[in-house]
């Protein structure tokens, strides 16, 4: 047996793993630019801006979801949490509260929902899938109840500037929301890779029994993870409210699936223990580029759905293939 050779091939596979999503993004952009008519429009600054703006909500949600999936969990209540957060924020504005209060409430509602999820999952040792499936209904229902089953039309406030393409105040050359997403992503990447909290997350997702053996307070970590992720979903809700300028209790249905898809395309495993912030963001970008490209190709909506579905399966299949190589 010659260990060096074996381990070299492992290194190669790991390298491929880390650049895989980037390569996927380049491939998607490359394919769309094959068509001359799309190309002229595709690479304009405006189009890039639109793509980035469209991906803000999914990206910020993916930051939270990456935490959860890396720790071996899942959260199905994201779409409902986003809707509830946006309704609460809009209602606060309607009732004459300041924008700052509305922002705090929106993020707080997200974090609160996450906290409850975490408490139930850790406290009762229940499957995250079931708990968050239940929460999906509870949060959606509460949103409809609070909003009286219609959209809440909030008065114009500075919140609307977050996602406004034409906002004169916006930070060169992108809307503020994009910058917020970018800054949060950088912070979370450092948190995941370099802090003890981040290392513990990977440990719990990789093997909970080992984590417990190594003195990690697994229950507390889970509660913190779901609550922190919930705060990110609250920020997503804020962006949602900013974009539509209303609080809509029926918005973001199925958003959690887009977010999970982004995280999985970015190389995370639903078994936990693997995944990265950069991968998840690139996963979200891949989906946004696909959507934008399909629109410019004038493909009907269903083609777009089929393509994104295939991409999800392909991404995970490739991942399996690479893992088999690594495991030899």
């Amino acid at each position: 047996m010659s260990p060096p050779a074996r381990f070299k091939s492992g290194d190669v596979a790991r390298f491929l793993n880390s650049i895989g999503p980037v390569f996927g993004l380049m491939l998607v952009v490359g394919l769309f630019s094959l068509s001359a008519e799309v190309r002229t429009h595709f690479f304009t600054g405006t189009n890039c801006k639109v793509i980035l703006l469209q991906t803000v909500i999914v990206s910020i949600g993916a930051l939270g979801m990456t935490l959860i999936i890396v720790s071996g969990g899942i959260d199905l209540s994201v779409g409902s949490a986003v809707a509830l957060a946006s309704v609460v924020g809009a209602t606060a504005l309607v009732n004459g509260h300041s924008a700052a209060t509305a922002i705090a409430l929106t993020v707080g509602v997200g974090a609160g929902i996450g906290l409850v999820n975490g408490l139930v999952i850790a406290g009762l040792r229940m499957m995250p899938f079931i708990v968050t499936l239940g929460m999906m209904g509870v949060a959606r229902g509460t949103a409809k109840w609070l909003a009286g089953n219609k959209t809440v039309n909030a008065p114009k406030s500075s919140i609307n500037n977050l996602m406004d393409m034409l906002d004169p105040l916006h930070f060169f050359p992108l809307p503020l929301g994009v910058w917020i997403a970018a800054v949060l992503a950088v912070i979370m990447a450092v948190v995941m890779q370099r802090t003890i909290f981040g290392r513990y997350l990977f440990a719990i997702g990789s093997n909970e029994a080992t984590a417990r053996l190594c003195g990690i307070r697994v229950g507390l970590m889970k509660i913190a993870t779901y609550a922190l992720a919930g705060a990110f979903f609250g920020v997503s809700g804020l962006m949602q409210m900013s974009r539509l300028a209303v609080g809509d209790p029926t918005v973001a249905i199925g958003l959690e699936l887009d977010i999970i898809a982004a995280v999985v395309i970015g190389g995370a495993s639903l078994n936990g223990g693997t995944g990265s912030i950069s991968g998840s963001i690139i996963g979200a970008l891949i989906m946004a580029v696909l959507k934008s490209g399909s629109q410019q190709m004038n493909w009907p909506n269903y083609v777009q759905e089929i393509i994104i579905g295939i991409v999800i399966i392909l991404a995970v299949a490739l991942d399996k293939f690479r893992q088999r190589k690594t495991a030899l």
Partner: peptide, 14 residues
């Protein structure tokens, strides 16, 4: 040190 290296002792995919 756990008797069960694979299931409890180590994070195999880390």
């Amino acid at each position: 040190l756990s008797e069960n290296r694979k299931e409890e002792g180590l994070l195999l995919n880390r």
